[in-house]
Design a protein around this nucleic acid. Structure first.
Lengths: 219, 219
DNA sequence: GACAAACACGAGACATCGCTCGTGTTCTCC
DNA sequence: GGAGAACACGAGCGATGTCTCGTGTTTGTC
């Protein structure tokens, strides 16, 4: 079969094309955030970008590819912004501080890129995007697991995996609430999210060496 | 204008019709749980119920009405199953017990009716269903607030509202994880969810009279 | 048994959405 | 300055999905 060179057509992009691509990606981000992936129509994305439907398909083979590319750029930007290892694990830092820093970073990123939440949260995700979704999920999960394994080295593997899932779930729930509010109220929810996570993890890491007693702060 | 009697057409249903309605509702529940609301086609629902598309529209004016009716029956059943006041608030019961009972009840209901989660969780909800979603949300929220106000009577109203939102968010996050697992693993996640909630609330209710010190159990 | 209303059917009207295609314009390189 | 590639347009094709409509069947009532 000689049909293996189809996918790799070395289309030379001009500067104008690159500009259109980011323009389309931004428009897609806007539409995805407001309507979600499935409800977003490619015509709407093209209209938002101020181009014709045909132009959109000069740069993306289909609707899915738009979300894929958008997701990849988002992931890349996240990695660049926060370094390869998301939160460098230092077992001597107090729990509150570690959790606070991690939460602050993630919240900041998600506030800057609301699409991220929209793309990763909807159950309306068909086909290939699910893979990317799972990839991100797994990445975050392993990061959290690394962090946890340094905090509680004695836990059973299964329990640690479970704890990681719980932490990610708690974060996502908190993020939804944070994004739903603004200003001082938003800050208050961020604080509550930190409380949730620290109080959940506290009893588990309370016994580790060098940290005599868990701290208790009033709300 | 004499066009005010349109909506109230006293269609006398026969027993057969009532049966068809619950049959269609069950089929819709099955389809909604597997594919979500928007992706579910009315033809698929009719097929699942073993009737023709035309028959479906004999009982429901449109697709949305199916979800509305399904949601209403679910809400009614929930109210009936757990009484008017969802969790009767007794300020002398220990926190762990109160949280445990509430979580167990809700989890049981959601495991029996997976549609509930599917209908209330998707961002793919158009138009009028959002209202019902909000109604349920508000109901649950006020229930939680009632429960909280008996547990921590001294908290500021704004903080209490916030805490309610957090609790509901945590529950939803936990529910997603619980439904994603089965058997012993599922039970373990239920336990973790209870831990999350009790540990989050513990410091707030720790100072209330009659409860000298918060209990601490190892994981 | 007759009449009307409720029930059931399924082909298809109508709309929407993803995507294509023919045509015309702009850029790049020689 | 001319050839070819990349870019841009927008009408419209094909598939899919919601909902209608004409027709036939069952049920309840006198």
């Amino acid at each position: 079969m000689s049909a293996n060179q189809e996918k790799e057509r070395p289309r030379r992009r001009q500067a104008r094309g690159e500009r259109r691509i980011v323009q389309l990606l931004e428009a897609a981000a806007a539409v995805f955030t407001t309507t979600g992936y499935t409800a977003a129509s490619t015509n709407a994305i093209a209209r938002e970008a101020g181009v014709s439907p045909g132009t959109l398909y000069q740069f993306f083979p289909n609707k899915e590819a738009i979300a894929i590319e958008l997701g990849e750029r988002l992931m890349r930007e996240m990695r660049e912004a926060y370094g390869e290892a998301l939160a460098p694990v230092d077992p001597t830092t107090p729990l509150e501080e570690a959790v606070g820093a991690a939460v602050d970073r993630f919240i900041a990123f998600n506030c800057e890129h609301p699409v991220f939440f929209a793309l990763m949260h909807g159950p309306d995700i068909p086909g290939r995007i699910a893979e990317e979704h799972d990839a991100l999920h797994a990445t975050l999960l392993s990061r959290i697991e690394d962090l946890l394994s340094s905090l509680l080295p004695d836990a059973a593997p299964a329990a640690r995996v479970r704890t990681s899932h719980i932490c990610l779930g708690l974060y996502k729930a908190g993020l939804e609430l944070v994004l739903a509010h603004e200003g001082a109220e938003r800050d208050a929810y961020v604080q509550e999210l930190k409380h949730v996570l620290t109080r959940y993890l506290e009893p588990m890491v309370g016994a580790r060496p060098g940290h005599p007693a868990p701290t208790r702060a009033a709300t």
